[in-house]
Structures are given as C-alpha cells and as structure tokens.
Amino acid sequence: MIICHKYRFIFLKTSKTAGSSIEMALSKFCGPEDIVTPLSKEEDLQRVEAGGVAPQNYGEMPFRYKPSQIWKVISRSKPPCRYYDHIPARKVRRRIGVDVWNSYYKFCVARNPWDRVISQYYWRQRNAEKMMSIDEFLESSHIRSLVRKGMGIYTIGGKVVVDKICRYENLVDDLETVRQHLSLPEPILLPKAKSTHRQDKRHYSEVFTREQNEKIRSIFKAEIELLNYEY
C-alpha cells in the first residue's frame, strides 16, 4: 500500500494482481513524507536498487499502542503497523482522515477471479510436499482470503470507493491512464516480482471442472457482476 502526498494518490493493494510489482514501480515517485509499506526483503532491496523508496512511515505511533500490541513489542520485538500490505480502504480512510481520503486519487487492480484463484492455488502451495486438490483448496481459508484481499480492499459496505479499478488483463494501458491523470514524470514500469514457479501453464478453463467453475462463480459473484468478468 502506498500513500503519496507528493502526487496525491493512494494505491490499495489487492492480492495476486501484480501488486508488489506496482508498489515497487510507484515508490520511485514517493518523497520522504509518503507512506510506503514493506514487501519482502528481496523486493525491498530490488526497489531501492531501482531508485525507489524503502518502506517508511507505516508504523504505529507508540502512544497509540494497544495492550496487545505492547505485548507483541515486548515478546517479539516487532512494532505494530498502522499501515500494512493489504490494508482495506475502510481502515486507510479512518487512519489518513476523510479530508485526505476524499481529495486524493485512489486506485487498485482487479483480476478475473478464475485466473486469480488458479494463480493463488499454485502460489500458496509452491513449497508444499503434497499439493491439496483444487476441491480442497476451494474449501480452504485461502479462498476467503482472496475475497477479503480483492473486492474487500477497494469497497466499503459493498460500495466501490476508489476512483479507478485497473484491470490486470489491461494493466499496462490502465497504469498509463493513471500516470497521465497524476502527471507522473515517467512511465510506471513494472519489474518482475514473486514468480510463482508454476509448472502447469494451462489456461484456467482447462483446469477447472464445471462444478469448480460454478463454485468460483458463486464465491466471487459480486465482483464478477461488478466488473463483467466472464469464464
């Protein structure tokens, strides 16, 4: 997640939508007062080497610590975060304030749910000794996470609260539209991040059964209807 005061934008990060690559690219436009949440150590190093800004200004102020957070600091030496990777819009709005929220350009990325599910299926099990079946995966917490970190990121009470939803399927052109709107000085060039090492390269339509297709359609019904996605 990035809040850039310099160019007055907020990037909300959904999952399995090239979000880390976009954050790495956008951090090049951030100044010292902007909020940039951490990625992996390798990705943070990569974006700094590419001229981007390292994670900054995302931590919670000590005077705001809750008792449970104080315990985590003591037991784990891990300060709590006020802003974090897949933080939803409702929390960002509350923490940044309504005035900033309303006056900044807000955007995110959405992806065809069937494609997103198959991507998550392989990513989550990249180091597993034995992969669960797709049917097992569709009953797991990973699917609830996809919903929460998808439409749950850019809506509040079921209502879209961002100015633009970029399409993963049209990402280069949509990011260029964002760049022009924000008057960013150079193109948003995406590095490669989080390669899945996926062996099965088949299109999702060749992988899912009819029953699995319909189950995904049901789970992501609201987003499919909102963005007119098709199988």
Score class of each variant (00 low, 15 high):
C4V: 03
K6F: 02
K6P: 01
K6C: 00
Y7C: 00
R8S: 14
F11P: 09
L12E: 04
L12M: 15
S15R: 14
K16W: 12
I22Q: 04
M24S: 15
A25L: 12
S27M: 09
F29P: 00
P32R: 04
D34V: 10
V36W: 02
T37N: 06
L39C: 07
S40I: 05
S40T: 15
S40G: 06
D44F: 07
L45T: 15
V53Y: 06
N57W: 00
N57G: 04
M61Y: 05
M61F: 08
M61A: 15
M61N: 06
Q69R: 12
W71F: 13
W71V: 15
K72Y: 13
V73Y: 12
I74P: 01
R76E: 14
K78S: 15
P79E: 10
R82D: 09
D85Y: 14
I87Q: 09
I87A: 05
P88M: 11
R93M: 14
R94N: 11
I96P: 09
G97S: 06
G97Y: 05
D99C: 02
W101K: 08
Y105I: 03
K106L: 10
F107T: 01
C108E: 04
R111C: 07
P113C: 02
P113T: 03
D115C: 03
D115H: 11
S119T: 02
S119H: 03
Q120F: 11
Q120T: 08
Q120I: 01
Y121E: 12
Y121Q: 11
W123A: 06
R124F: 14
Q125W: 07
N127C: 06
N127R: 12
I134N: 03
L138D: 02
L138N: 01
E139L: 11
S140W: 06
S141W: 07
S145M: 13
L146K: 08
R148F: 06
K149N: 14
G157K: 13
K159A: 11
V160R: 08
V161G: 10
V161K: 07
D163L: 03
R167P: 00
N170G: 03
D174G: 06
D174W: 05
E176Y: 08
V178F: 04
Q180S: 09
Q180M: 13
Q180I: 13
P187K: 03
P187I: 06
I188G: 02
P191T: 07
A193G: 13
S195E: 15
T196D: 09
T196I: 14
R198E: 01
Q199D: 10
D200R: 07
D200Y: 02
K201N: 09
K201Q: 13
R202W: 01
E206I: 02
V207P: 00
F208Q: 01
R210G: 05
N213W: 04
E214R: 14
I216S: 01
R217C: 13
S218E: 14
F220W: 04
I224G: 09
